[in-house]
């Protein structure tokens, strides 16, 4: 099964509190009036320029595991390596906010208006991260009741560059997707263009399959342990797709 999705820009605008957090303002702190004005201006730019879209390509877990291992530069043991054997279904995904928005961020941060560029970057980064989750939610709707999945099944995105999966893994991942999926291309370092893009593997599995202790050797060198937050129940914070976007599935 393969699906392409076009979201409405307003559908993927992240919660302001999350954007402010990414912009360095701690939760519970009231931003200054000028910061609030920056956020409002950034949102206007986002709504005018973002072209959010993505692709989901289902692949059997074994084939997915093979594609994931192909970088040859991963840590000996990875989070995904532990989760994949427990997967009920897997899919590759790639999603982007499109080049016009990224060009605007570059232009603003290059000197036109750095504070606005910074805020727009924070907003776009949150929105791009959310695209993986949104694609996962849409794919889950298709899966539940159609296979080995159940109502308890949870879909989480896992991306190259994190938790032992080398960013070079993107090369193999993109080989398994259609050419230039949704307009994303990789550079020589396997980094995506447009910049505000995400890719990886969607893993559908029982909730406990996604839970692990950050006790991998590489976890000792990581200060954030953001993986823990991923394992919490995903709140209904407005990021669930509203269906305004255009979805087309090819079974």
């Amino acid at each position: 099964m393969r699906g392409t999705v076009r979201f409405a820009a307003r559908e993927v605008v992240p919660d302001p509190g999350v954007v402010l957090l990414r912009a360095g303002i701690p939760a519970g702190i009231e931003p200054s009036a000028r910061t609030r004005r920056l956020l409002d201006a950034a949102e206007r730019h986002f709504l005018a320029l973002a072209e959010p879209r993505g692709i989901v390509a289902e692949l059997p877990p074994a084939a997915c595991a093979e594609a994931v291992r192909a970088s040859g530069r991963d840590e000996p043991e990875t989070v995904l390596g532990r989760v994949l054997p427990l997967a009920e279904a897997t899919a590759l995904f790639a999603a982007t906010l499109g080049e016009p928005l990224c060009a605007q961020i570059r232009s603003l941060t290059a000197g036109e208006d750095l504070p606005l560029g910074f805020m727009l970057d924070a907003l776009a980064s949150e929105a791009a991260d959310g695209l993986g989750w949104r694609l996962g939610a849409l794919w889950r709707e298709r899966l539940v009741g159609a296979g080995p999945t159940s109502a308890a099944t949870r879909v989480l995105p896992y991306s190259p560059g994190y938790c032992g999966w080398h960013v070079r893994g993107q090369e193999a991942l993109f080989r398994a997707l259609p050419p230039d999926p949704v307009g994303i291309v990789l550079n020589a370092s396997c980094l995506m263009s447009p910049l505000k893009s995400v890719s990886g593997v969607l893993v559908a599995a029982a909730p406990e399959a996604h839970r692990f202790q950050p006790d991998f050797p590489f976890c000792a060198a990581c200060a954030t342990h953001e993986c823990r937050a991923r394992m919490l129940p995903w709140p209904d914070d407005g990021r669930t797709p509203s269906g305004e976007g255009e979805v087309s599935w090819i079974s």
Partner: peptide, 8 residues
């Protein structure tokens, strides 16, 4: 103060 204020 926080980052946006520093940038301004």
């Amino acid at each position: 103060i926080f980052l946006p204020d520093v940038l301004l």
